[in-house]
């Protein structure tokens, strides 16, 4: 069973790999600094390729509402969540807002609270 810390780090790393204009938390950010993922994922510092910078990812950053991710990312996200919790997710039972941010994902699908 994965710890909540591991789950959050894995989710952050996945979001940063898909939402190209977001970057990892930076010092001084008012949101909690959850630290960098330690799973060998690439460095997700601020974009330096001229792409618009949507700011730092926090666990309360809206993921779909502000179009950082597309609905077409949901199949991959569902696979990841199922893998993290070790059981299928009933897609017929999903509600609007279930994928709002990382805090929501953790509490809705991984059976743990919203605080790291």
């Amino acid at each position: 069973m994965r710890s909540e810390k591991e789950i959050r780090e894995t989710l952050r790393s996945w979001v940063l790999s898909k939402a190209k204009n977001l970057h990892g938390s930076v010092p001084g950010n008012s949101a909690p600094d959850h630290g960098a993922p330690d799973d060998g994922a690439p460095d997700h510092g601020a974009p330096d390729d001229g792409a618009p910078d949507d700011g730092a990812l926090t666990d309360s950053t809206p993921l779909f509402e502000e179009r950082r991710l597309r609905s077409l990312h949901l199949p991959e996200l569902l696979l990841l969540l199922e893998r993290l919790r070790g059981e299928p997710i009933d897609v017929d039972d999903l509600r609007p807002g279930d994928f709002r941010d990382i805090d929501t994902l953790v509490s809705r699908f991984c059976g743990v609270g919203v605080t790291a």
Binding site: R70, S71, L72, L74, P75, L79, L94
Partner: peptide
């Protein structure tokens, strides 16, 4: 088999 593709609202 179920699909994991969900219609977007955008």
């Amino acid at each position: 088999y179920r699909t994991r593709q969900i219609a977007g609202t955008q």
